[in-house]
Amino acid sequence: MSDLMKTLALSASGMQAQSTRLRHVSENIANTDTPGYHRKTASFEAVLQGGNRTGEVRAGDVKLDRSELNRVYDPSHPLADETGHIQGSNVDLVVEIADAREAQRSYEANLKMFDQARQMSSALLELLRK
């Protein structure tokens, strides 16, 4: 029974990490047109317990993408420099949409694994009752 519970914990940690990733992607998409906005990224880290890997993952610290910001010509903008340009964001919608799909598919895979482990544990409990 402990293996089934470990499977539930593993898939739950994967779903939580992917939901954090999806939150950052949605923040990036929402701030595509925000001047000076740097894209947020988060890597995944292995969870350690007693110095050993548990197999679980968690979202690491949020990092800002330090690639160059786009320059946008808008002389009427209050943040425009002497040439009429402002610094846009470094968010690429194509990349963000691809990241969102990858996070969604990974979340769904973890959800299916969680559901299978839950069904197996229910079936095991039903067998033990008989």
Rank of each mutant, 00 (worst) to 15 (best):
A98R: 02
T34C: 09
S76Q: 12
E96K: 12
I86Y: 08
S11F: 11
G51K: 10
L22K: 06
T7K: 14
D74F: 04
D65W: 08
R39T: 08
N70S: 14
G51H: 05
D81R: 11
L79M: 15
R58V: 08
G88F: 06
L10G: 10
V72D: 00
V25N: 08
I86G: 03
R21C: 06
L127M: 12
S67I: 01
A30R: 09
E68C: 02
G60Y: 07
R101E: 02
Y37T: 06
H24N: 07
G50N: 14
G14D: 09
L64K: 13
T7S: 15
P78E: 00
D3H: 12
R53Q: 07
E45V: 03
A46Y: 08
I97N: 05
E27W: 01
Q116W: 06
A109Y: 14
D3M: 10
L127S: 03
D99L: 00
R71G: 07
A30W: 02
P35R: 09
E108L: 12
L48S: 09
E56Q: 06
A103W: 08
A30H: 04
S11R: 09
Q87L: 13
S121E: 01
R66S: 12
P78M: 04
N90Y: 05
T34S: 15
T7V: 15
M5D: 03
S67W: 03
L93I: 15
R23M: 09
P35I: 04
V91K: 07
A103L: 12
V95M: 01
N110G: 13
D92C: 11
R58S: 07
A98Y: 05
V47H: 09
V57G: 02
A117M: 10
L8G: 03
L64I: 06
S43N: 15
D115T: 13
L69Q: 07
V57N: 00
P78N: 02
G36V: 01
L10N: 13
A109Q: 14
N90W: 06
F114L: 07
L111I: 06
D81K: 11
Y73E: 00
T20Q: 15
S11Q: 07
S106P: 01
A103M: 13
R101Y: 06
Y37G: 03
R39Y: 08
Q116M: 10
Q16P: 00
R66N: 13
S19N: 13
